[in-house]
Design a protein around this nucleic acid. Sequence first.
DNA 1: CGCCGATAAGACAACGTTGTCAGGCAAGTG
DNA 2: CACTTGCCTGACAACGTTGTCTTATCGGCG
Lengths: 335, 335
Amino acid sequence: MRRATMRDVAAAAGVSFKTVSRVVNDEPGVSGPLVDKVQAAVAALGYRHNLAARSLRHSEQRTASMAVLLQDLSNSFSAQLMRAIDDVARERDLVVMATSLDEEEEREHGLVANLIKRRVDGLIMMPASRDHAYLQREVSAGFHVVLIDRPPINVDVDFVVVDNVGGAKQATNHLLQQGHRRIAVITDEVRVATARQRLDGYRTALAEAGVEYDGALVRAARSREAAAEAVQELLASANPPTAVFSARNVITEGTALALRRAGLSDRIAMVGFDDVPWAELLSPGITVIKQDALAVGRLAAELLLSRMEGSTDPPRHQVLPVQLIPRGSGEIQTS
Amino acid sequence: MRRATMRDVAAAAGVSFKTVSRVVNDEPGVSGPLVDKVQAAVAALGYRHNLAARSLRHSEQRTASMAVLLQDLSNSFSAQLMRAIDDVARERDLVVMATSLDEEEEREHGLVANLIKRRVDGLIMMPASRDHAYLQREVSAGFHVVLIDRPPINVDVDFVVVDNVGGAKQATNHLLQQGHRRIAVITDEVRVATARQRLDGYRTALAEAGVEYDGALVRAARSREAAAEAVQELLASANPPTAVFSARNVITEGTALALRRAGLSDRIAMVGFDDVPWAELLSPGITVIKQDALAVGRLAAELLLSRMEGSTDPPRHQVLPVQLIPRGSGEIQTS
DNA sequence: CGCCGATAAGACAACGTTGTCAGGCAAGTG
DNA sequence: CACTTGCCTGACAACGTTGTCTTATCGGCG
């Protein structure tokens, strides 16, 4: 049941195990007949090269692997990031370890420690924690990190984010332009950096338009259901909003659901942050601030790979633009 | 820039490297003062345990890692499978390598070979290939494989699939019951096992109802756009269908899109295979055959883990039921 | 015929760790 | 006081591989 090793192959082929090593690695300096004998023995024994042992001895201690830690792989935004990263990794024959952090700080710490023990070559992470100083020591030791979606805190490493403040401002301004003054906003919990930034953009836009900020119109929700509930409550309140800015994809889903249930899809305006695949299937279509997840993922992967290939540029900070896509829901005028 | 090893830590702490090993592994038999000295040296040097070296020597050659090969991680079905698998793996502290096969047979072969070289403990795969005999040798050598979504061919290993034939029959019967006789079906390409099975179910249901099979109503499409185009063509044909069975999630999306563009969402009936998150947001809502991706993933992961923990049961074949969820689109009567 | 160079093949240490064993020392026992 | 017992500690081989070095073999050439 034990797997065959080079020694076993060598014994079977009647050569030294070093000769097997040469054949397996396609190194020159082995005569034709011996190559054949070794290959026959490899096939007969089902021998498989052991990369762990190889990278242990091999001068350049590379494992040809990287890790991706995202918020939730089943969420379409994370899933698209993963896909884009994987596409880039694939070209370089890198294996990608992936998992979800679920906004759990301790899980992040535990996983990073584990990945370093495995000597993974690099990491792309959408951090759950709010202090990334612990990464400094590992980065100095040659572990490469690129943060994604959220900027690093207390450490300076490569990162790729989108213009959350600008996007939220744009969404809010768009609704203001349709005459709305009571604009609700549903964000992720405030410990999430993007939620804070999008809330910032919302407040800035209101302030610039001279509209007073009303905390009663602000809600946090982690899930589609929680968002739907929050919207339902807002609609039932004494002074309900006439428009909603839903600051994340699952929240947009919940908001659309609540509006539909209330039969107000045509009356209450809404703009969502994150494009969603079904936005144009609804009537009205959902107006969104689209962030290009594939571009974010690809860029992050390229930054990481350049580090793995030896780049020593100072940390690179990439902020990608977002784009408002009007589809109907955001163009509903105040009545 | 080189990472500290146990020897470095030992030198710094003034002990033998074996003592460091004991401390790092929380083994008993090291006096309190020495433990402290070693831990101080570990912290000072930023030492990190090297798991590759460990598992090389460690008697039980486990890497505490597994791999997941799915069709497309950015597709919500694959993403949910991944999520469910990862949740189970997490409980056992397994690292999960994940990637998309994109229905490319060669990619599957290359990846499996690579994963075996890395001595991954197990694999969950939605296979792209149509002959899995090559897995036999690896399984015999102690590599554990669970297939998912599609049954194994020419090899007998654990697998988890859903009742594709039954689901497709159910979908077709449902449409027949509304009086439809010209029911189009859009599937994935026929080389995909699930596409063939769902087409089988469709044909069986027609036959049982005494409705003649019309090849002109059958289309294959790999993407949302291709599906939308196929539906558009069918609608424009001389003898258009009155109902559509869309046999996969992206196809359902494309079908909904095409119907909406043609303004026929309320006239042409449709049932989709795979639930989609936005199905109830539309009007009419989309009637679907729901397969429980999370259950499939969880079950597959549990089968794999039981193998990794030593189960030698004969290969287990799991077929999960599917469920028709009426939401409106499938209940449109023939006019 | 003797020597040299090139080439093929193997011996052996090393990678960073764990498993096994032996040695040292202190405390307990007769 | 000698002997045993038990606990710490370290020396050393081993895991499966690659890198370096040495040895054997052969053909070519003067």
